[in-house]
Design a protein around this nucleic acid. Structure first.
Lengths: 109, 109
DNA sequence: CAGATATATGGTATATTTGCCATATAGCCA
DNA sequence: TGGCTATATGGCAAATATACCATATATCTG
């Protein structure tokens, strides 16, 4: 039971780690629209191609995206559909947190 | 617009980073039930108290939990309600990925 | 096959994260 | 106030993540 739990949280952490970089999040947002090749994503992120390739490997290894070869190009697509809803919820909470902080600041002044 | 986007993805990454550790995820799961003091969470995680305290600081700084003092003890509670639903969705996708991989293995054997 | 293009991988320097120890801070109670 | 308990913080060493360069691999095309 303890081992099982450990594995569960490590699996979740692997996904969270894959999401824990601005460039990867930018790419995921773009991929939510349509599949894109590495060249598109490299342009989008504005980093070295090898850097983008490694970011994509992280996402793929976490099971968040999948890839498909078409000739010389490799297209990546999103496999997890719950990201946009999740961020919407999280950002709602953070906005609320901010409001509460501002209220505290105001009452203290 | 570019700056705004960068800030958005950095804000999201901060939340994802806070989620990117098995011990923190274990604590968040426990906090989904009810608020807990640092001592409870230290027992749960089984790490040094200072380590747990720092993990909690990460979660608090990301806006995922809030704390409340009651005498000598400090109770933490979850502020973000969308975590369990998110993990449920993610784990569904990962299970599906696994099935597909197994199907590939089978057809290749 | 040779050359060109798209992508991945190895190597390495730098930055960040993590965990524990020691210690500081804060509240409770005698 | 002094001692006790709960929690937080500073410091440091080890582990991990990140970015870029150089280069390897794979595919297409002539």
């Amino acid at each position: 039971m303890k081992l099982k739990s450990t594995q569960l949280y490590e699996a979740r952490a692997k996904v969270a780690k894959a999401l824990a970089h601005p460039s990867r999040l930018l790419m995921l947002d773009a991929l939510a629209e349509k599949e894109l090749c590495v060249c598109d994503l490299t342009d989008l992120v504005g980093a070295d191609q090898s850097t983008v390739s490694k970011h994509l490997a992280v996402l793929k290894n976490a099971g968040i995206v999948a890839d498909r070869r078409d000739g010389v190009m490799i297209f990546y697509r999103l496999k997890v559909g719950c990201l946009s809803g999740f961020w919407k919820c999280v950002e709602g909470v953070l906005r609320q947190n901010l409001k509460e902080q501002q209220a505290v600041m105001k009452s203290a002044s």
